[in-house]
Amino acid sequence: MNLELIWDNLPQLLKAFLVTLELSAVSIAGSTAIGLVVGALRTSRVPVVSQLARAYVEIFRGSPLPITLLFVYFGAALYLGYSVELFVASAVGLSIYHGAYVAEIFRSGIEAVPTGQREAAQTLGLSPMQTFRYVVLPQTRRIVFPPLIGQYISLIKDTSIAFVIGMVELMKAGQAIVDRTAEPVPVYLTIAALYFVICYPLSLWVRRNERKIVPA
């Protein structure tokens, strides 16, 4: 394997790696915010609200991520009349797509909290928002934590799909090097290793905490 080739292109790869990290962090925050709101609305007792939330989930779970990204990037230019920065379009696309999955994770967590908890909070005079924030949400933590981290891992790997709109992240930067050097194997292996370096610690973290969550 041509290690010199990797060494020579390392600055470029690390720069792209940082973009991938940044895009992942922003999209994780975005998808969590969307997922929390949509997941909560999904459990609403107002039928219109829960149906709208459901429609959101079904639409984005039922369409491929590249299409979502293309719609956000070119759709903004075509219909809103202004161009969005690549990074912003990528982050928004990833957030709304993964937000649909995160919403389902939060929904299952919220639904697992017994209704008696809400009734107790209500008779004590807590508002619906306070009940959600201080009674329901903290109890979903142990239920949503493992699947949520799993979703974040998928999201991190999915940032590579942002290349379809021309975003230069790790994957795209690697392809450029391959095009230039005609050495796909060492380059792609290095890229895979860099994704692994982010994702594996998250897996380990879940496993450690899952063990902790199991009641003694």
Binding site: G116, Q117, E119, A120, A121, T123, G125, L126, Q139
Partner: peptide
């Protein structure tokens, strides 16, 4: 709400808060 007290068969204490936390949340 907040002017009558309800005590349930299944207690419905908040499991993530200690006894004092349960009593002081509201």
């Amino acid at each position: 709400r907040g002017h009558v007290g309800m005590v349930f068969q299944q207690f419905n204490l908040f499991p993530h808060l200690n006894a004092l936390g349960n009593v002081t949340l509201a």
